[in-house]
Simulated assay, not measured.
Amino acid sequence: MNQSDPRDAVLLTAPDGASATIALHGGHVLSWKPAGAAEQLYLSARSEYAPGKAIRGGVPVCFPQFAERGPLPKHGFARTLPWKLVQQEQGKDDALAVLRLRDSDATRAIWPHAFELELSVRVGGRSIDIELACDNTGDAPLQFTAALHTYLRVADLDAVSVEGLAGLRYFDSIKQAEALQRMDLLLTGEKGVRDLDRIYFGVKERPLLVAEDRRQVIVRQQGFEDAVIWNPGPERCAKLADMPPEGWSEMLCVEAACVGRPVELPAGESWVGRQSLSLA
């Protein structure tokens, strides 16, 4: 297995047929198929699988910076570096893979910290658990923002709703303003609703329900304080070279994130965040 090859990937298959595919490039979950069900993640057919490039779709790992909220490259560097497979096994009910990324001369040149990231992906039945752990292996404190930038596949964006956000304040990255979510988020196709880029603060462990006709995906998180809901809409999507023009209508990002308050990690300490997706 060549971890420097952006197309090299790990295939996980549980005894019941549930499966997930993880690229070593970026520690990037590319596919999730629950037992007896179709693909649940969106992956752009125009993704660039090249060193230093981020894959479009699936579940990118944003670390140690979310978006452009800081001096580092957008969404940090973890999603564009080769990770190492350190464990893969099939259990009685599920399958597990663990990938690792450590600091290097290249990362320390732009972010002067010693760290170790581990991404654990467990799949079985109708669920997938994606866990991101960070150890501060240096002798000084560090801080970071992070996200699991999950692209859910949808058949018709007009039929999608996200329940569980009501009562939360959010930052609208398009309008550059804060607002209050007063009810469930309904994606009705109206202009300004499809073009979504919102950071919801204080989500913590409240579950979110992404519903589309008869399909429901329950999204749970631990360790991540916030959640991001993103869809580029038709105009912004047309400007993305690694997405087809109609790609915006086939996906919705529902991301577990730590954005509003960066994670403060003393020397020798660890942090863990998890996102769990279940097909209801």
Rank of each mutant, 00 (worst) to 15 (best):
Ala18Glu: 04
Ala18Trp: 02
Ser19Thr: 13
Ser19Arg: 14
Ser19Asp: 03
Ser19Gln: 14
Thr21Tyr: 00
Thr21His: 06
Thr21Leu: 13
Ile22Cys: 04
His25Asn: 01
His25Leu: 10
Gly26Asp: 07
Gly26Ser: 12
Gly27Val: 02
Gly27Lys: 05
Gly27Leu: 02
Gly27Asp: 00
His28Thr: 12
Leu30His: 06
Ser31His: 12
Trp32Leu: 05
Pro34Glu: 04
Pro34Gly: 03
Ala35Gln: 03
Glu39Val: 13
Glu39Met: 09
Gln40Thr: 14
Gln40Lys: 13
Gln40Ile: 09
Gln40Val: 10
Leu41Asn: 04
Tyr42Asp: 10
Tyr42Trp: 15
Leu43Val: 14
Ser44Phe: 03
Ala45Arg: 15
Arg46Phe: 09
Glu48Trp: 06
Tyr49Gln: 09
Gly52Glu: 05
Ala54Met: 11
Gly57Pro: 11
Gly57Leu: 07
Gly58His: 03
Gly58Ala: 01
Pro60His: 05
Val61Gln: 05
Cys62Asn: 10
Cys62Glu: 12
Phe63Pro: 04
Phe63Asp: 01
Pro64Gly: 08
Pro64Arg: 13
Ala67Cys: 11
Glu68Lys: 15
Arg69Ala: 01
Arg69Trp: 14
Arg69Thr: 03
Arg69Gln: 15
Pro71Val: 04
Pro71Asn: 10
Lys74Tyr: 08
Lys74Arg: 13
Lys74Trp: 01
His75Lys: 04
Gly76Thr: 07
Phe77Glu: 12
Ala78Tyr: 02
Arg79Gln: 06
Thr80Trp: 07
Leu81Met: 15
Leu81Val: 11
Pro82Thr: 02
Lys84Met: 13
Lys84Ser: 15
Leu85Ser: 07
Leu85Asn: 08
Leu85Cys: 09
Leu85Tyr: 06
Val86Asp: 10
Val86Thr: 14
Gln87Glu: 11
Gln88Lys: 13
Gln88Ile: 01
Gln90Met: 10
Gly91Val: 09
Gly91Ser: 01
Asp93Leu: 07
Asp94Cys: 06
Ala95Cys: 01
Leu96Asp: 02
Ala97Trp: 11
Ala97Asp: 12
Val98His: 00
Arg102Glu: 15
Arg102Gly: 14
Asp103Thr: 08
Ala106Arg: 11
Thr107Asp: 00
Thr107Pro: 02
